[in-house]
């Protein structure tokens, strides 16, 4: 399974040690979706993590103990019965979660990249999009 962690850190616990802990101690595959680091070394990053559920939970605990502020981020979900494939969301998403299928021209959603910015939610005229854990 995969989960998305939002990790806030400061100069005392720098960014790369996070990935190190996750890979070596918990055998998780991290994928950095978003990272913002300010001049003083503090910042926030959003990681998509792939691995066993128990290990994901253990990793969350371990990072919290290490002083990181960890939260599980939401991801966009779409009610397929409501979506009418208009395409309004396509140009809104900063990380290109939506695209037109070349053959069917339907609007496809790949929420694995979603950084939960919520920008697409109010672009949808039929309320098909919502953020879920």
């Amino acid at each position: 399974m995969d989960k998305k962690f939002k990790i806030e850190f400061d100069e005392a616990n720098v960014q790369d040690s996070v990935s190190y802990i996750l890979v070596t101690e918990f055998d998780l595959k991290p994928n950095v979706l978003k990272a913002e680091i300010s001049g003083d070394g503090s910042g926030v990053m959003i990681l998509a993590l792939e691995g066993e559920e128990a290990k994901l939970e253990a990793a969350e605990k371990r990072l919290k103990e290490a002083g990181f502020n960890v939260s599980i981020t939401k991801r966009i979900e779409r009610d397929e019965d409501l979506c009418w494939d208009c395409g309004a969301c396509v140009s809104i998403c900063p990380v290109f979660c939506f695209s037109h299928d070349k053959d069917t021209m339907k609007v496809m959603l790949d929420n694995s990249k979603c950084i939960a910015c919520s920008s697409c939610v109010n672009a949808c005229s039929v309320h098909a999009l919502s953020l879920h854990l």
Partner: peptide, 20 residues
């Protein structure tokens, strides 16, 4: 999904459903 305008890339969205 995108067009160029004065050297800048603008992303495009349809508002009417082509598959529909």
């Amino acid at each position: 999904g995108k067009v160029e305008y004065n050297g800048k890339t603008i992303r495009t969205s349809s508002l009417s459903s082509y598959s529909g």
